[in-house]
Design a protein around this nucleic acid. Sequence first.
DNA 1: GCCAGTTTTCGCCTGATAGGCGATAACTGG
DNA 2: CCAGTTATCGCCTATCAGGCGAAAACTGGC
Lengths: 234, 234
Amino acid sequence: MPVTKKSDPVNIPSYPHEVLAVVLSVRDGNLCVLLWRRGQSPFRYRWALPGGGVQPTEWLRVAITGHLAAKVDVREVAHLEQLATHSAIDRDPRTRVLATAYLGLVPSDVRPNLPADTAWHRVDELPRTAFDHHYFIDAAVGRLRAKLSYTNIGFALAPAEFTIAELRDLFSAALGYELSATNLTRVLTRRQVIGPTERTARPGQSGGRPATVYKFVARELTVTDPFAVLRPPR
Amino acid sequence: MPVTKKSDPVNIPSYPHEVLAVVLSVRDGNLCVLLWRRGQSPFRYRWALPGGGVQPTEWLRVAITGHLAAKVDVREVAHLEQLATHSAIDRDPRTRVLATAYLGLVPSDVRPNLPADTAWHRVDELPRTAFDHHYFIDAAVGRLRAKLSYTNIGFALAPAEFTIAELRDLFSAALGYELSATNLTRVLTRRQVIGPTERTARPGQSGGRPATVYKFVARELTVTDPFAVLRPPR
DNA sequence: GCCAGTTTTCGCCTGATAGGCGATAACTGG
DNA sequence: CCAGTTATCGCCTATCAGGCGAAAACTGGC
């Protein structure tokens, strides 16, 4: 059992702490994660999550935002939430580094200018990643998929305005299975997650009825579905 | 923007990191949290979460387990999961200390021997707490209540065997509102979260039909309710 | 032993919501 | 004007949560 005098910060040992970001976005109909290719050992040429150290006066959220700025325009990140902290002592072979990961989401219509070492990778065809970044990516994808079903988190993946067909393709890509436009519309409108605008979209070359343009009612995260059971009495 | 050379641990600054535990349990029909009373400044005489520093070779989970051992028998903690990491630079007035909190659950039938400075406090009548511990407690209670509805996490609050009436009282206390035994039984048995045993319980002094004794089918966390919407096709 | 009181358990009903499918609306180009 | 295409709506079903009252199975008292 550790002998640290409890809660006395002078006696608490310290060691490096880094922040990482799992930035997810739907690119060309596939859910993708933003990775950069390492140029140095360890894990040279493996793909890694963006991130880095935390300055002594920085909040974690500010730190990850700063590191992300080197990869994408931060204003393009529509949602950012903390995921988990990993502490395995050998997760970095050089020295112990604690890592706190964030989940970031980028709308499908923004096309960030990526540095040469950075690219989007489909989450269903991931390359081998550096360190334990694979676990963070799995956790991020799992959380996104769960929250798509009971929150309005889709706003952070979608353009400001969209048709139902576009939204169906977006959700199908993010969830990894096909959805019907009928039911998607019904569920999201009843919950007041999305709502129609006055405008309609021009049909494509092959014709068809013009689609109503929808938008998300709110662009901040809210829980929309009280869980299915054990509800309070009316 | 920070200038840290990315991902080079030598250049990452370090500062103290502590672990905290929000240990929840139902005591005498009320959801309670385990707190200890600080004897020293800062926040002298305020109530605080158990926890402390992390040794250089310790995983966070091991560290919090070690610190908890000073308060309760660790074998009495039926479930332990990571909650969140707070990084506000002034959360400890002495120096910057990052804190990672865990959620711990203790079954209602175990009665740990508590040290003199430690006690259970009802979460609906919390005293003023030290540091930012209040936020961690809120997050822990919120997560427990959500997971009671879509996972089998109740196993960590309940005795090994129980009657439906006991389980209803337990869930009502944990959730903060009354439940009906009828519906609770139906939902949890259909999901195969709980199941009947062969045994029945003796009625109380005032008589009544003997109740079937139930138990949780699994005693590890599993998600039992696929979220209510956007399911994959059959 | 029977009866009144108590507690548990079961069956039946209702309401809400997800989801499937086909019909109809509203556009295209030829 | 028509065939083709896409979007939208209405109707149906299935599942599940939840309410309520009846019946089951015990108690203690007379």
